[in-house]
C-alpha cells in the first residue's frame, strides 16, 4: 500500500496526510482517494493520535478527481448491460460510500490546511473536516456538479447546507459558483487565516501551533468532545443517509454518460471549470 502523490507522517499527536502533486494542481486519482481513506483508518486506530491533518503543496489545495480517473470509469457497454450498471455503480459508490465513510468513522479531530483553491471531490473533503485553516485570502471551494452533469456528491448535500446555510448552498450548487475564502472566513468555516505566502512555512506553523496548544490540554477530553459533537449527532446520521441518497441520485447521470462527455471536453481543453 503506497502512493506516489500522497504521503503521510506522524509528529507527536498529529497524523499528517500530504497531497503532493503540485504540477497537476494536486488533482487526485480515485485510487489515491481510496488510499487517503486507508490512511484515515490507520490514524483512527493509533491511540497516540489526536489530530488528523490534511495538507497540500504548491498554491492549489487540490483540483479534485483526476480527469483520467473519471474517464477510465467509462464503460462502452450497452446501457441495458448489467455489467455496465455494476461497474458504474462501483465507480460512484467507492467514493460516495467507501471514501465518505472513512470520514464518518473518524474519531480524531480532522483538520484541513487550505493552501489554495479546492474543487469537486477535494472541496467536498474539506467540508468533511472539523476544523479548516486558511493560508491567505485567495482561494475558494468549487462544487461544479451542475457544470459537469451530475449531482452533489461526497456528503455535500448535507455539509454545504449545514455549514453555509440553505440559500447559499443552493446558489453555489445550482450555479456551480465558487465559495470564496471571504465567505468561508465570514461563516467561520475557515476558523483561522494565517496570512502566509509560503505553503511549507504555513503547513509547519499549523503543526507547531497544534503541538504547542496540546501541551496543556487533556487528549481524552478532546476526543470525548468530538464523540459527543459528531458521533452522537443527527448531522452524522444525515451524512450516513446521504451516502445512499447521493449515490442513487448521481448514478443515472453517470449511466447516461453526460459527465463523461463533459470530462472529455475538459481533457480536450474545450471546457473549463466555470469560475
Amino acid at each position: 500500500m503506497d502512493s506516489k502523490y500522497i504521503g503521510y507522517s506522524v509528529d507527536g499527536p498529529c497524523f499528517i496526510i500530504k497531497i503532493n502533486d503540485p504540477k497537476h494542481l494536486n488533482s487526485i486519482s480515485f485510487e489515491d482517494f481510496i488510499y487517503i481513506g486507508r490512511l484515515l483508518e490507520i490514524a483512527n486506530n493509533d491511540a497516540s493520535i489526536i489530530y488528523t491533518i490534511i495538507q497540500s503543496t504548491g498554491n492549489f489545495f487540490s483540483a479534485g478527481g483526476k480527469i483520467e480517473s473519471v474517464l477510465d470509469g467509462q464503460s462502452n457497454l450497452d446501457r441495458s448491460s448489467s455489467k455496465k450498471l455494476t461497474d458504474t455503480f462501483g465507480m460512484v459508490a467507492k467514493l460516495n460510500v467507501l471514501f465518505a465513510d472513512a470520514f464518518l468513522k473518524h474519531k480524531k479531530i480532522l483538520i484541513c490546511c487550505l493552501n489554495g483553491p479546492a474543487i469537486g471531490l477535494s472541496a467536498a473533503m474539506v467540508l468533511l473536516c472539523d476544523i479548516v485553516y486558511g493560508k491567505d485570502n485567495n482561494g475558494y471551494l468549487l462544487f461544479p456538479f451542475s457544470n459537469l452533469g451530475f449531482v452533489a456528491e461526497l456528503g455535500t448535500s448535507v455539509t454545504l447546507f449545514e455549514k453555509l446555510g440553505y440559500n447559499s448552498a443552493m446558489e453555489h450548487l445550482i450555479f456551480s459558483s465558487p465559495v470564496s475564502n471571504k465567505e468561508l472566513i465570514e461563516k467561520n468555516i475557515i476558523v483561522k487565516n494565517y496570512n502566509l505566502d509560503n505553503t511549507d512555512v504555513y503547513n509547519k506553523q499549523v503543526i507547531l501551533d497544534l503541538k504547542d496548544k496540546s501541551k496543556k490540554l487533556y487528549g481524552p477530553s478532546i476526543l470525548g468532545m468530538k464523540k459527543m459533537i459528531f458521533h452522537e449527532s443527527t448531522y452524522k446520521q444525515n451524512l450516513t443517509k446521504s451516502q445512499a441518497l447521493e449515490t442513487s441520485a448521481t448514478l443515472p447521470f453517470w449511466l447516461e454518460g453526460e459527465p463523461f462527455k463533459r470530462f472529455q471536453q475538459m481533457k480536450n481543453k474545450e471546457r473549463k471549470h466555470k469560475l
Partner: peptide, 21 residues
C-alpha cells in the same frame, strides 16, 4: 454544548474553540 454551540455558532468554530479552550 455538544449541540448548542455547533448549531448556533457553526460546526468548525465550535471545534476550534472547544478543543483548544
Amino acid at each position: 454544548t455538544s449541540i448548542t454551540l455547533p448549531k448556533k455558532l457553526g460546526n468548525n468554530i465550535a471545534y476550534q474553540k472547544l478543543m483548544f479552550n
